[in-house]
Each structure stands twice: as structure tokens, then as C-alpha cells.
Amino acid sequence: MRIVQMQMNKTVRGDPMPTMLKVNGTSRQVDVPGEKPLLWVLREDLGYLGPKFGCGAGLCGACTVHLDGQAIRSCITPINAVGEGAITTIEGVAASAVGKRVSDAWVDIDVPQCGYCQAGQIMSAVALLESNPAPSDSDIDAAMAGNLCRCGTYHRIRDAIKQAAGGANAR
């Protein structure tokens, strides 16, 4: 899995301009500077509060969403880099078969503790299974190491990914 990370210029920003975004299958127009990070457009302008702010620097993964099926860190992705791409957030991820399986496994295994990182974890897990339907432990580690869980729910994250992949519920 490729993690798309686009560094934006932190101090320059343009005037608000109308931009069309495709989020969870719906086209939505926003009127904000093109440098505004996707995370804050989703949270403030479009009302998708599922993606979370953790670090603002692409280090914790709490803000993970999909851009054309790839996991990206929305806190460091300016919307002018999104273009025509299809964005999927935690609110829309269960619309796909893999997304539904992963979400169901997350509930079934009761993965969350505080829950703050889990939207990002699920988005990374779905992106992993979309590209690798039967990941090994080391595949899971490699794909999920960008998502910090401060509570340490990692065992259950592994279990849930395996359950969603249809494998054994092994540790």
C-alpha cells in the first residue's frame, strides 16, 4: 500500500474558491482556500466528523481516509491535491463489501478502547484488504504501523483484520 503524503506550504494560502469534492459517492461543493487540508474540509465544511485530528503531520493516522481506494493522511493533504479523486471516509466505508466486513469484525471483536484512532485504523485495514485479501502478520504490521493506537488495541486490530479476511481468529 502506498501512503500518499503531500506536504503543503504552511504559510501561503489563496482566496476561497469553489471546489467540487466527491465524498462517499456524493459530489459536494466547498468554498475554501485550496491549501485547506482535506481533514478540516471534511470535518468543518462537510460535517464528516469521523476522521480525527491527532498530530497534523501525518504521523498518527487518526485522519486516514481513502483517495481512490488508497489510504491517505487527510491532515496533510490540501484539497487542491485531491482533484477528481473519490474520497471515502469512515462514514461511507461500509458501503463496500470489504468495508462492511471490516466494520462488522471491528464491532464483533469489540476492538475500540477509547476509540479515537479506530476510524483511521479501519480505513487502513480496508485499504490493506482491498489490495491484499489474505495478509500475513507481517503484512498487517507493515500496513498498520502508521496508525497509532495509544490504548494498545493492536491484538484485536490484528484479530479483526484476520476475521474480515476470512482467516482464523489467531493471535
Binding site: G47, G50, I90, W106, V107, G115, Q118, A119
Partner: peptide
Amino acid sequence: VPGPDTPAIVAGKPLFGVDTV
């Protein structure tokens, strides 16, 4: 017993302090 908020967390519902609107 699973967490009562687990389904809402997994669905990305606003529950946390930062989600207050």
C-alpha cells in the same frame, strides 16, 4: 460485554470532545 459506544465508533459517529458542534 462490548462497549456500548463501539458501533457508533466504528460508524464514525461524533462522540468525542473534538466532535462537539
